[in-house]
C-alpha cells in the first residue's frame, strides 16, 4: 500500500456561482460554491480546485471570500486558479486560505514568473495549468500545442516540452487539460496525458472530458496521471466522489476511502 491516486472535483466559479461550460461556451449554473465544496468534502474528495473563469477585479474579491469561507469549513487542500498574474495575486489567494495556486497564461507570457513564484512560496503551492490541443494531422506523429484564451489562441509551444520546462522552473504539479475533450464527456486524451505524465518528474493532474467513472480510472491506469479532475459528472448529482472512488478501487487503483 502507498500513495493514493487523487480525485479532484473542479468548481468553475463565475460571479460567485459554480458554472460549467461545454468547451468554455454555453454556461450552466450548478450552484453555490461553499455548499458544493462541503458536499464534495463529505463525499471524500481528496482536494478541491476553484477556477475563476471570468477573473475581473470584482470577481477576484468574490472568489477570495468564497475560498476564505470554504477554508474555515473544509480541511483538505484547496487550489485557486484563474487570473493569477502576480506574486501579490498568489499571496492574496494563500492568505484567503488556498494551499496552491494554478498559473496558466501568465506562465506563457513570462515563464520566469513561475520561477519567481516557486522561489517565493515554494514549489508545493505552484500548480502550472496547461491547456493543450492536438495539432498534428491524421497520419503525422502526434503533437500537441499550448493554447491560451480558453483554447482560442495558439502559442506555438509544444505541450510536452512546455510541461518539462515548467517542472524545471519550479512547478510542483502540472494540471493538464485536454482542450479537445473539455466538456465533451468523451474521456481524457490518453496519449497526451500519458506523454506528459511520463515526461515530467512532478505529479500530473489529468483534466478535460470526463463523462463516466471509467474515464477517471483510465486517467490513472492508461494515462498514468497521479490525480484526476472532473466537474460536470459530480455537479449534477450523476455520480458522487465516493462512487468514483469505489469504481477505481474495484479496478485495483489505490484510493483514499
Amino acid at each position: 500500500m502507498g500513495l493514493a491516486k487523487r480525485i479532484i472535483p473542479c468548481l468553475d466559479v463565475d460571479n460567485g456561482r459554480v458554472v460549467k461550460g461545454v468547451q468554455f461556451v454555453g454556461i450552466r449554473d450548478a450552484g453555490d460554491p461553499v455548499e458544493i465544496a462541503e458536499r464534495y468534502d463529505k463525499q471524500g474528495a481528496d482536494e478541491l480546485v476553484f477556477l475563476d473563469i471570468t477573473a475581473s477585479h470584482e470577481d477576484r474579491d468574490t472568489m477570495l471570500h468564497i475560498v476564505e469561507e470554504v477554508a474555515g469549513k473544509v480541511f483538505i487542500p484547496l487550489t485557486v486558479g484563474g487570473g493569477i498574474r502576480t506574486l501579490e495575486d498568489i499571496r492574496n489567494a494563500l492568505n484567503a486560505g488556498a494551499d496552491k495556486v494554478g498559473i496558466n497564461s501568465a506562465a506563457v507570457y513570462r515563464p520566469e514568473f513561475v520561477k519567481e513564484a516557486a522561489e517565493k512560496f515554494g514549489s508545493q503551492c505552484i500548480v502550472v495549468a496547461i491547456d493543450a490541443k492536438k495539432v498534428s494531422q491524421e497520419g503525422e506523429a502526434l503533437r500537441w500545442e499550448i493554447f491560451t484564451h480558453g483554447g482560442r489562441k495558439p502559442t506555438g509551444l509544444d505541450a510536452i516540452e512546455w510541461a518539462i520546462k515548467m517542472a524545471d522552473y519550479g512547478a510542483g504539479e502540472i494540471l493538464l487539460t485536454c482542450m479537445d475533450r473539455d466538456g465533451t464527456r468523451d474521456g481524457f486524451d490518453i496519449a497526451l496525458t500519458r506523454a506528459v505524465a511520463e515526461a515530467v518528474p512532478v505529479p500530473v493532474i489529468a483534466s478535460g472530458g470526463v463523462g463516466t467513472l471509467e474515464h477517471l480510472a483510465e486517467g490513472v491506469t492508461e494515462a498514468k496521471a497521479d490525480a484526476v479532475l472532473a466537474a460536470s459528472i459530480f455537479h449534477y448529482g450523476e455520480h458522487t466522489v465516493e462512487e468514483a472512488k469505489q469504481h477505481m478501487a474495484a479496478k485495483g487503483i489505490e484510493v483514499r476511502l
Partner: peptide
Amino acid sequence: PQGGDRLKIPHMGWNE
C-alpha cells in the same frame, strides 16, 4: 520505482 513506474517528487497526496 514501484511497479515499473518511477515515483514522482514531490511526494504529494494522501498516504498511510
